[in-house]
Amino acid sequence: MTSESKVKIALAVNGEPTEIAFAPHKTLLEVLREDLGLTGTKHGCELGECGTCTVLLDGTPVLSCLVLGLACAGRTVRTVEGMAQGGKLHPLQDTFADLGAAQCGYCTPAFLLAAEALLAANPKPTREEIKDALAGNLCRCTGYIKIYEAVELAAARMRGEKAEPTTESLYGR
């Protein structure tokens, strides 16, 4: 029962080649959190019903709770730990922090990665496109609004525009 023999795979996690051994029934979520110590990826149901465990698999946002670790051999995985580079936050992380798009912070890694994938495919999304792209991620704290604003602001900055948060967003009307 407790001595199921481990399997070993090679994959790239946040740009680094990684070899890891784990029990073969484990999901990517469990491998990341328990075998690689990357606890930035969270979970809210383990059944694909909340989006909290979102990671990028070969650049595509997926639910790590429903991906087998074994199915990731030879693939690339990006987690929230890979977003900040050289001690500097990713533009999305910056705007999420500045606007309060992260309250409890539990769903935040998932939203950041889903948003990053959106902006990679669509650098100038409309509010509706942002809502559609993030419709698979639940957040109970923010009501999503600060998240939309953070994605819009980061998108503008990533396009090279000099953008600042609106007064209404920070101070109300």
Partner: peptide
């Protein structure tokens, strides 16, 4: 003022340790 929260950087980098993150 609309300042950043003191725990914001930890929250957006996944560094915040929630109870289940402890081992």
């Amino acid at each position: 003022k609309a300042l950043r929260k003191v725990d914001a950087a930890a929250k957006v980098t996944g560094a915040t340790k929630f109870a289940d993150d402890l081992a």
